[in-house]
């Protein structure tokens, strides 16, 4: 076995194990911390694919910002086992059905996108370099890129508006 394969196997095992523990563990803080480890091992997968930029962005956005806010909220809310809400059976059934549907869609996406990934390898461009990535993003995918930023802005303004509204009503 080559070194890369061993690293891949270890990373995959860690990713799946911690993702499972995220759902399985009772304590919300432990579950958030398992999710952080899972995000780090996914960043490791990006590094194996030679995309440093994606790996670092993944760490900054998910581990550095989103998960810290999650932890922050959980710590402030002080969730315990005692005040855990008991969910009715129909909700659990709904969760299982929606999970199966999402996995179906995801598997379909991965099967269909396989040949396109193959094409990208054959072009021989250096996707590790952020210069190449930036040129592709801002030349070929300019419009979707700008739409994504507008979407984020709208989400941000919306959340600020919601929090302001609550304050005035009180």
């Amino acid at each position: 076995m080559s070194t890369i394969l061993i690293i891949f196997c270890v990373l995959s095992a860690v990713t799946i194990a911690t993702a499972f523990l995220t759902i399985y563990s009772r304590n919300p803080i432990h579950s958030a911390l398992y999710l952080v480890i899972s995000f780090f091992s996914i960043a490791g997968h990006y590094l194996l694919l030679n995309s440093q930029f994606l790996a670092i962005m993944h760490i900054i956005v998910y581990s550095g910002a989103i998960m810290i806010l999650f932890l922050f909220t959980i710590m402030l809310m002080n969730l315990n086992k005692e005040n855990e809400v008991h969910k009715p059976r129909i909700t659990r059934l709904g969760a299982i059905v929606s999970f199966c549907l999402i996995s179906l869609v995801l598997i379909a996406i991965f099967i269909n996108s396989k040949p396109i990934v193959g094409e990208y390898i054959s072009t021989g461009a250096d996707y590790q370099s952020i210069k190449v990535l930036g040129l592709v993003l801002l030349n070929e995918y300019m419009v979707p890129f700008e739409f994504a930023s507008i979407l984020l802005l709208v989400a941000m303004i919306g959340s600020v508006l919601l929090s302001k509204k609550e304050k005035t009503e009180k």
């Binding site: 962005m57 581990s63 710590m75 952020i130």
Partner: peptide, 25 residues
């Protein structure tokens, strides 16, 4: 000498808070 050294710095700084948060909690 990685291509994204500056982003790496920001990344490490952003995860630096975990030690304090976990210890404090």
């Amino acid at each position: 000498d990685i291509d994204v050294a500056l982003l790496y710095l920001i990344g490490v700084m952003s995860i630096g808070v975990y030690g304090i948060m976990i210890g404090g909690w």
